[in-house]
Design a binder for these strands. Sequence first.
DNA 1: CCCATTTCGCGTATGCCATACGCAAATTAG
DNA 2: CTAATTTGCGTATGGCATACGCGAAATGGG
Lengths: 276, 276
Amino acid sequence: MTGHQAGAGHGKSGRTMTTEHGDERDLGRSLRLLWGDRTRPPRGRPPALDLGRIVAAAVEVADELAVTEGLEALSMRSIANRLGIGTMSLYRYVPGKSELLDLMLDHVVEPHERDVLDGLGWREILSADAHGHWRLCLDHPWYPFVDQSRPLLGPNSLRGLDQLIGALRPFGPDDRSLMMVIGVQYDYVNGAARGHINERRAVARTGVTNEEFWAEQAPTLESALRGGAFPTMADLDPHAFDFSQEQLFEFGLSRLHEGFASVFDGPAGQGRAGAG
Amino acid sequence: MTGHQAGAGHGKSGRTMTTEHGDERDLGRSLRLLWGDRTRPPRGRPPALDLGRIVAAAVEVADELAVTEGLEALSMRSIANRLGIGTMSLYRYVPGKSELLDLMLDHVVEPHERDVLDGLGWREILSADAHGHWRLCLDHPWYPFVDQSRPLLGPNSLRGLDQLIGALRPFGPDDRSLMMVIGVQYDYVNGAARGHINERRAVARTGVTNEEFWAEQAPTLESALRGGAFPTMADLDPHAFDFSQEQLFEFGLSRLHEGFASVFDGPAGQGRAGAG
DNA sequence: CCCATTTCGCGTATGCCATACGCAAATTAG
DNA sequence: CTAATTTGCGTATGGCATACGCGAAATGGG
């Protein structure tokens, strides 16, 4: 869930702001759209498109825009243009942008085959899920910015959840702990992906690499450090920040999984510490 | 970030989209604003305000709006109105909204006293930091939605980082690992806070409680489950989702800290599993 | 003491957004 | 063939960031 202004205005403008959505979208309507109920009244003029085509186009446009801008850059007009129709025509298929986002979310989630998870340990299952989620976020760089509190459970997301829970359930914890594990990992991956995407965007939009960015701040920082107010920072290893967002993601994921050991294997913690 | 829609338009409208910013804001200018360089030319008409007052007002307005809406609801006009000045007057003090966000970020961060962290173990230090960060997010419900890739390091955030690193450094790991630990925790807390805030917002804006929300989805879900396509979900403990976002946050934080043990105490992992 | 200079306050204009509303076109039941 | 129905979508409304330029305010130099 994400919205915002992005390239708004003109010239210099500023940062990409990510819209997250969260309004009072018509829940019932969204559900009906998600789960079918396509009853075409054979009465009047037949529709030129169908919902699927619209959602696909929206995802397509969002995927392109979100590389450099945020979800805010996804406008109803841009979607309509892609489809070669008038902007307002979209509203014949979808109540509003929010509901369209709901549909996009479920559209984009493709659960892995159940077989893939068979025979794996809980670490590998969680790892596979996390990396699938991570890839999903990178492929659709608007995804982790959408507000997913109160998600509309569509067929795809429901299937994914079903498979994940099913695969993990044999490993012991009660259902509630399991859901918390899944929730924590989901939030973590989303957050890490956001970081990665934001950084990629910054480079794509400004043309300024990370190194150049820090170089620009360096003089100010150094003079601040020289002031003696920040003793620790002053003698920090200059390579302390030499890691990529991917590395950070993997690092955190490993830590998290080590922490999950007490949930799956019991508090004793007989799990191999470094394992993936 | 977010041009959007939020309360946009009128009536029903939809979800809140959260702006995150990320444009090519004028880095040098922001830095100069952050670190002083207030040289008043005694030449012409004296300014009626100062930057501090503007930033404070912006934070004030954002704090109020972000409870129910997102950052997208924070407009230059609303800030100007709060100050009783014309919208465009703001641009005499700040190059644009993005830079104002930069200043707001540093304004809002108040590092704890160094003493507070003295004599604590790494778990307690990290825990204190995480909870401070968590509270910060709840107090300023726009904070965790701002794009913090490439943060402008202002005096406050720099001091906070300095203290945290200083407190943790004695516990062993190299500076790079330490920064990764801090980075992972930062991302995690932000993510958890976003979840909590999003949920709070949904209730505040729609008046629909979580229970009511799920009750509304229940019929659709149940009929889907009855279809047999989701066997695992179908016999899930009905209380599996009975936990709050705070509980989820604490749970995940504990897991994370258990996972950090291998970084601080070595891979053997002699840390007590459940400790806080 | 007055004015040229400098800086500030901010009204107005531009172009973008979501979307309410209503009409005209398309289709079909009778 | 016509009335009923439904779609396509132009137009209008109100909001947003912000570029631009004018008149106002304050001061230093004469």
